[in-house]
Design a protein around this nucleic acid. Structure first.
Lengths: 201, 201
DNA sequence: GCGTTGCGAAACTCAATCGTATCGAAATAA
DNA sequence: TTATTTCGATACGATTGAGTTTCGCAACGC
């Protein structure tokens, strides 16, 4: 029992390669980010992309869905730092993050799963919602709640509804932007200002 | 040449079954509406669902994408009648249509293709956008333009941006509603009123 | 060094689906 | 009736990918 390891008993033999595991996760996210759907995602393609053998994948995950779930778990939601000065400024920061990330593989990955696979893999989507969607939504809601307290926003504001209006506009722009097209620099600002001021005169 | 047909020269032999063609299109839309992606969509499954032989499909469409394109063309966009009295009322009508249709197979079909397949089949998506998305967006834009003229809306309103804010909120609700969950009756009204009045006090 | 386990590569079996071909029956024009 | 074409059904070879097995080598504890 004089084991130097502090963690679980290390079994004999060559340890599993951490590098291979990372490469598999990365390859999976890359493929999803490129628009490959979960059902089209082939273990062989992942193995080839990651430069590992299929054996190495099956030794860790018994099926594709488990692998995708773990890949999603690796998607840390990088909720942006908020200055906390004004509600308008913080909302612009949040939406601006959405805008600037709209072209990145990781964000496209988030979008593709959130939008395209929610019907077919409800279990996967639920997990994904908790990991990637909830934290961002919570951040927006907190900003809105703060605005109600400080008087920057209407006291009777429906926070949930306001959040969907703000993020909905950005999601549509991100998803439907022509391939490679860059969204206007001031999009986030314009969305926030429109929402704040309203459509009425 | 004493042909009684007024249309194109009818070739001899048994005519193609109109019923079979409809059944194929219906089966295709049904499967897509159930969440089956275009790439998972198998000709064999369509044939089985439609109760026809694979031959009957291949005689009409040379590949899957052609079939899906024609199926989409069968999706007439039923843009709702607008009362034309007030801008608010017309916007509520438009969004209410989106809400009430959110559970229908046809609308889910629209959503699934629009959201999930735009990356993988850009050509398909472009065609789809013209058929199903543009007419609805145009209707909303026209209502907003009218509002600017009549003074019901701000004269400096960014119509395009306002449209995405309105529809974006509804899209997110429709897409992310839990399976089978019915959206609140007054959702359209609340979205429109929030957008009109704005978040600010 | 030895036993054990992981590694990538390759070959394998199994199932699904593709697109084509063939069949007898049915529908239509001449 | 006869010629022609479509019908649904079925069988076919080809391809793809899943999941398993085997192989020789590498990395680790003892």
């Amino acid at each position: 029992m004089n084991r130097t390891e502090t963690t679980a008993a290390r079994p004999a033999g060559r340890p599993r390669s951490e590098k291979a595991e990372k490469a598999i996760i990365e390859a999976t996210l890359d493929l999803i980010g490129e628009g490959v759907g979960v059902s089209e995602l082939s273990i062989e393609a992942i193995a080839a992309r990651a430069g590992v053998g299929k054996t190495t994948i099956y030794r860790r995950w018994s099926n594709k869905e488990d692998l995708v779930v773990d890949a999603l778990a690796a998607l840390k939601a990088p909720v942006p730092e908020l200055a906390g000065v004004s509600v308008r400024e913080d909302l612009v920061t949040m939406l601006e993050t959405m805008r600037s990330e709209a072209g990145s593989t990781r964000t496209r990955c988030v979008m593709n799963i959130a939008m395209g696979e929610s019907d077919r893999y409800p279990h996967l989507f639920e997990r994904f919602r908790r990991i990637a969607i909830e934290p961002r939504q919570r951040a927006v809601r907190e900003v809105l709640e703060r605005g109600k307290r400080t008087g920057e926003l209407r006291a009777d504001l429906d926070v949930q509804l306001a959040m969907t209006a703000l993020t909905g506009a950005m999601v549509i722009h991100s998803k439907w932007a022509a391939h490679g097209e860059v969204l206007p620099d001031d999009l986030a600002e314009r969305v926030v200002d429109l929402a704040l001021r309203g459509l009425a005169p």
